[in-house]
């Protein structure tokens, strides 16, 4: 009987010891998890976002770009499905004159053929000369809502083709010669208060428009009259209204919401 008791006690001792080791490791892991959390929360911010998270967001964009294909078309709807009351969400950048007698589109395009600080200045009528393209698609906001809406304008690619823009050489852009294309396009409102940067691959996508019509009528002012970007491959934050200036570059242009912690591409 006595011997059995000792055995029992030995067993209890063994259980305690084994538990202690396991729970020691367990609490160590909890500490590591808390440590990682504190490290993220206490890290510096890079463009409005904790640096470790920013690093992952940038990596996600590389993964995303790997899957990108210009043949991926956004699902389109018949124009009757487009909303009559189209939601307008952001008004940053709407100060400044949008009167088309004064409004001009400025395109900065220095290249060997146009040396120096070359600026192309166009009026709305110039844009209207480019073949019109219509598109009804589900517009998606980064906030989480979406709405089917109907737009008309010209393809951005047709626009840069007509004016030989977006290339290092100054020649017409060629989708089969991506080396010659600038990597990014920057768009800015006339007052400079709102600005976006977008990768060229998405800009020359066949569904990317410089839009001047909504529901077959002139754009209303709260939708970016006279000219706005419609880029179904991106969240609404990239669909800049009231376009004033377009630039080309090989480095990421500044971007309003990127500076406020969002990922750069905002790609869908």
């Amino acid at each position: 009987m006595k011997e059995k008791l000792t055995e029992e006690q030995l067993m209890n001792k063994k259980i305690r010891k084994k538990s202690l080791i396991s729970f020691g490791v367990f609490f160590l892991l909890i500490s590591v998890a808390i440590g990682v959390w504190m490290w993220v929360r206490n890290s510096e911010k890079s463009d409005g976002q904790y640096k470790p998270l920013r690093t992952v967001l940038n990596t996600n964009e590389k993964v995303n770009n790997f899957f990108f294909s210009e043949n991926d078309l956004v699902k389109t709807y018949s124009k009757s499905e487009g909303a009559k009351n189209v939601r307008a969400n952001g008004y940053y950048g709407n100060k400044g004159s949008h009167d088309t007698s004064v409004w001009r589109l400025r395109v900065l395009h220095s290249n060997p053929k146009n040396p120096g600080d070359s600026v192309l200045i166009l009026c709305l009528n110039d844009i209207l000369q480019i073949p019109k393209q219509e598109e009804c698609f589900n517009f998606k906001c980064v906030e989480g809502w979406s709405q089917i809406s109907f737009w008309g304008g010209c393809r951005f690619f047709d626009f840069i083709s007509k004016y030989n823009l977006g290339t290092h050489s100054g020649n017409a852009p060629d989708k089969n010669n991506p080396e010659d294309l600038y990597k990014y396009v920057s768009l800015e409102t006339p007052d400079g208060a709102y600005y976006v940067g977008i990768d060229m691959k998405s800009m020359i996508h066949s569904q990317t428009l410089l839009a001047y019509e909504m529901n077959e009528k002139q754009l209303p002012d709260n939708q970016g009259y006279p000219l706005r970007l419609i880029i179904p491959l991106k969240y609404g934050i990239k669909n800049l209204k009231w376009i004033g200036t377009i630039r080309f570059s090989d480095t990421r242009p500044k971007d309003y919401w990127f500076e406020r912690g969002y990922d750069y591409d905002a790609a869908l």
Binding site: G48, Q49, Y50, P52, L53, R54, V56, L57, N60, V142, E143, W257, R260, G261, Y262, D263
Partner: peptide, 14 residues
Amino acid sequence: RLSEGMAYHFTFMW
């Protein structure tokens, strides 16, 4: 805190 939420979400999703 939308941008913060998205950043955490698209980090921890991995």
